[in-house]
């Protein structure tokens, strides 16, 4: 399988005046097409820093990063932006949708910054298609304030998908969601992964990490373990189990 992401001895040091924070200390990592990895670790262990590097939002202090075979370190601000636009999709903990902007327009956003010109009609068709993938076709005209947390996160996922990225990056995507909604979102990720999209997500919840194929554990900026998930959970089955449990709770009432 071809390597989509290749990190070689990545270091990131934050230099904020007096103190130097060595947030990432030599991470090497290969992600193949179709990978589905959870990055775990204690708060401050460098997960977000690593994700920002993977997302080409930040440059490593040291080390080499190949994205889809391209060495990212030599690229300027605009070239990085183009790379993010074409090859990466982002999902954030806080959803980060534009307020007072419809779900559809939020999903269209990355296409507006695409280098090749798309007609307004084409934009809309593609955005609608992505909303359909995340099961929100009927909410296209809704504003974020009219959507639940889970729905907002699904709009954000649709937005991340709209430019057919190679890698979907999600920093604590279920952090603001209740457990059932979190499982629903993981279900969307699993479906997308089945269709071939490489996904990297950060979580500190063990049971959420079990929906992934691979778990990477960080401590103090280093990778301490990188394992394949043995007893993987599947969202469809979990949701069914949750529904049964709810039904049972009501029966016993």
């Amino acid at each position: 399988m071809p390597a989509v992401v290749q990190l070689e001895d990545i270091h990131k040091t934050y230099d904020s005046g007096e103190v130097q924070v060595h947030a990432v200390r030599g991470v090497s990592l290969t992600l193949n097409s179709g990978d589905f990895m959870a990055i775990m670790g204690a708060s401050g262990s460098g997960k977000s820093t690593l994700m920002n590097t993977l997302g080409c939002l930040d440059r490593p202090t040291r080390g080499r990063y190949l994205l889809d075979g391209v060495d990212v370190s030599g690229l300027d601000r605009n070239e990085l932006a183009d790379l993010r636009n074409e090859k990466l999709g982002f999902v954030f903990q806080g959803f980060n949708l534009l307020s007072r902007t419809t779900a559809l327009e939020n999903v269209e956003l990355p296409m507006l910054y695409g280098r090749q010109r798309a007609s307004g009609r084409d934009l809309q068709t593609r955005a609608e298609h992505c909303l359909q993938i995340v099961g929100l076709a009927d909410r296209a005209d809704h504003f974020p304030s009219q959507l639940s947390g889970g729905q907002q996160q699904r709009v954000a996922i649709a937005r991340a998908l709209v430019n057919n990225p190679q890698v979907l990056l999600a920093d604590e995507p279920t952090g603001n969601l209740d457990s059932k909604t979190a499982v629903e979102v993981m279900g969307v990720f699993q479906k997308l992964n089945d269709q071939g999209i490489t996904i990297v997500m950060v979580t500190h919840e063990l049971d959420i990490a079990r929906f992934c194929k691979r778990n990477l554990i960080m401590r103090d900026g280093r990778v301490v373990s990188d394992i394949t998930v043995a007893d993987r959970l599947f969202a469809d089955a979990e949701l069914q189990r949750l529904r049964d449990a709810e039904a049972a709770a009501k029966l016993t009432d």
Partner: peptide, 16 residues
Amino acid sequence: TREIGIRLAVGAHGSE
């Protein structure tokens, strides 16, 4: 600011 951050993240150039 956050909106600008989102736009930059999804590929907007500074000039845009």
